[in-house]
């Protein structure tokens, strides 16, 4: 086992792709840095916190990007966002088999405020443009900073999301909610509550991610390859049927669980008799439990959306 959580962006992308197949685009030697950080005396990174390039995944040519959580929490600035947009546009031009996005990010880089917000919007549009070209976009989430803000929205525009239980996927971070509405609303120091609310297991049970794996780079690699093959069997572009189905799912979720205030109560409503045990389970045990307890998971999973 090689921990995905503890690896940095380059280690993850090299571990994801076939041995020695990764070739980086605009590598750090090009020294393309943020034009906005200097005015705040903030440090820059020669890759602006994201590694992009091409390689092979189980022999298929793919493009991949990995955000570096160690640089400004993986947040998206002007250059960082443009690298992602460029990668997605080039993926379309070269018709690769898939684009894999290893997301670890707080969303918009506040130091670049307005430029960062537009950049995230451009990434979102580019992801959907890539899907429209019938190239699947697969998102992996397992870094310690989670996937938040506008990038939590971008992730849900992809065809398929793979998470570890340590991964978190949401919109506003607990600290932001606590600051805005008080510790009674969301205690950001209650780590167990934070994970129950935004962690991989809850997202998997709700249907916001399609696969959950152990915190292991090899497990993410296998899941990404499986997702790519599953996507290639299906409609990749956005369709009205997909949006109708998603609408039905989200409306039902609100109807069924909108009155709950604790994720464990949602799990109980779904059919899990002992929700307290869920956080302790390994990924494979957890998937088994879901399959035996929750009617939705009993059928073979079509879930590549």
């Amino acid at each position: 086992m090689s921990s995905y959580l503890e690896a940095n962006a380059r280690e993850r992308i090299h571990g994801l792709l076939d041995d020695r197949s990764f070739e980086e685009f605009l590598p750090p030697s090009e020294r393309i840095v943020s034009p906005h950080l200097a005015q705040l005396d903030a440090p820059v990174a020669f890759d602006d916190g994201v590694v992009i390039g091409q390689g092979l995944l189980h022999g298929e040519r793919v493009f991949a990007a990995a955000q570096e959580g160690g640089f400004m929490g993986g947040a998206v600035g002007e250059v960082h966002g443009a690298k992602l947009v460029g990668l997605l546009q080039r993926a379309i031009a070269e018709n690769v088999s898939a684009v894999i996005l290893l997301l670890e990010t707080g969303g918009v880089r506040l130091h670049e405020a307005n430029a960062g917000l537009i950049a995230v919007s451009e990434v979102m549009r580019a992801v959907l443009e890539t899907r429209a070209a019938e190239i699947p976009v697969i998102v992996l989430i397992g870094g310690s900073n989670g996937c938040f803000g506008g990038m939590g929205i971008v992730a849900r525009c992809a065809n398929f999301i793979v998470m570890s239980e340590e991964g978190r996927l949401a919109m506003s971070g607990p600290e932001v909610i606590e600051t805005a509405n008080g510790v009674e609303e969301f205690d950001s120091r209650d780590r167990a509550l934070v994970w129950r609310t935004s962690g991989g297991k809850h997202r998997y049970l709700l249907g916001d991610c399609q696969a959950i794996v152990a915190d292991d780079i090899a497990a993410f690699r296998q899941a990404a390859a499986d997702a790519m093959h599953a996507c290639l069997q299906q409609e990749v572009a956005l369709t009205l049927a997909e949006m109708d189905a998603e609408h039905t799912m989200l409306a039902a979720r609100l109807q069924d669980f909108g009155a709950q205030s604790e994720p464990m109560e949602i799990w109980r409503c779904m059919g899990i008799d002992n929700p307290q045990a869920v956080p302790m389970l390994e990924a494979t045990e957890f998937v088994e439990l879901a399959r035996h307890s929750v009617p939705h998971f009993a059928a073979p999973q079509p879930g590549v959306r």
């Binding site: 929205i153 996927l169 609303e185 969301f186 609310t197 809850h202 709950q260």
Partner: peptide, 17 residues
């Protein structure tokens, strides 16, 4: 909206939708 309930229900999915 900055509420625990919205995050628990997956507000990023509703907004992406």
């Amino acid at each position: 909206r900055l509420r625990h309930r919205d995050e628990m229900l997956g507000i990023n999915s509703y907004m992406a939708h």
